[in-house]
Design a protein around this nucleic acid. Sequence first.
DNA 1: AAATCAGGTCACCAGGTCAA
DNA 2: TTGACCTGGTGACCTGATTT
Lengths: 227, 227
Amino acid sequence: MEVNAGGVIAYISSSSSASSPASCHSEGSENSFQSSFSSVPSSPNSSNSDTNGNPKNGDLSNIEGILKNDQIDCSIKTSKSSAPGMTKSHSGVTKFSGMVLLCKVCGDVASGFHYGVHACEGCKGFFRRSIQQNIQYKKCLKNENCSIMRMNRNRCQQCRFKKCLSVGMSRDAVRFGRIPKRKKQRMLIEMQSAMKTMMNSQFSGHLQNDTLVEHHEQTALPAQEQL
Amino acid sequence: MEVNAGGVIAYISSSSSASSPASCHSEGSENSFQSSFSSVPSSPNSSNSDTNGNPKNGDLSNIEGILKNDQIDCSIKTSKSSAPGMTKSHSGVTKFSGMVLLCKVCGDVASGFHYGVHACEGCKGFFRRSIQQNIQYKKCLKNENCSIMRMNRNRCQQCRFKKCLSVGMSRDAVRFGRIPKRKKQRMLIEMQSAMKTMMNSQFSGHLQNDTLVEHHEQTALPAQEQL
DNA sequence: AAATCAGGTCACCAGGTCAA
DNA sequence: TTGACCTGGTGACCTGATTT
């Protein structure tokens, strides 16, 4: 977990590793978030968290929707209406109420909701190429459970692709069009409560501007945006 | 068909998949459901009230209309009047006596009666763009009979457009203004009998709130974000 | 006036590109 | 191969028109 101060909320889940394959994805329904975020870190610590984390729940997974609406700070703000909270910078960074969303696969800054999960341009492109060409990657040289992070995401393609699937990336989970207001709203609320929880439990004190939502692992929550 | 519980009534028609081209559709103008619904779920439950309360009631007076009035829960409820029975959420979901109507093209939740058939915002927009710009889509990469469902409706434009036409979408089928009482009544009656049938035959027991009326394929009802 | 839909808008994303 | 950018859609909402 990171919750670092900078204002990043991270999907907190745990570790990652590879194990859980896919499974997920149900899409269909959506539900959106599982239930809630309950778990958010409250206590941090724990470090542990299970392994993979999957928490299902807990996490902020949901945030999703939220994320994108508004604009971003940086560049342009074209927005007009936009809901409160969400923004996307023109650079592609997705923020929600000042919080930067992270790629569920590698933890880098997410550029949007791709193939059903918040992902960075790199993982988006990697996943696209993988499914388009139905590439069979070389077997992992280690234990097939390499941790995938921004810095080392290109070291093991097999594990990266596996991670993509485990966090729920799927062609079936694609969402087009703008994010429904209700969804955004819902996310915002969830996010806020998650933040609150975090703040209380952790550092009480400092948060700066942006918060990062990471996630990691979390396995897949299916994606759905649902609204 | 599925009739799944959730309260969805599906247009039950045939199979869909690819083969049957048109077939259905009668619509032309109004009528909306083909003939039958036979299978609709059943009773709703009562309890329900669905979300909003719409009472189902019986009145026939309104059916079609019925569908759209209610509103959804979430956000706003703009509604005001509404006849008993039909409601539309403000989100655009069309409901009839607690039943959610589905898009005849892809099975997603319908936002209304567009170009002669109940359709979702996505298929409505897709069809509009197709005819306005007279777009010639790229040839289907498969057999030109892709099944069109919410999850994969964006995979093959040619087949999606074909499906739109086969279920009866047409610029000439446009209906403006409020739904005539007689029509609503007619719909209500059909719907009720369909429901009755379903209830008897199928699950008797559980239904939740809304019923979905799908149509074709059904298959997919899945996800939807519903509301 | 109220109900409903065609169209327009524009937030957002899949995919294609191409320098690195 | 990767991933930052760009382009062509997609679809949630909104507005104006139409009908009862």
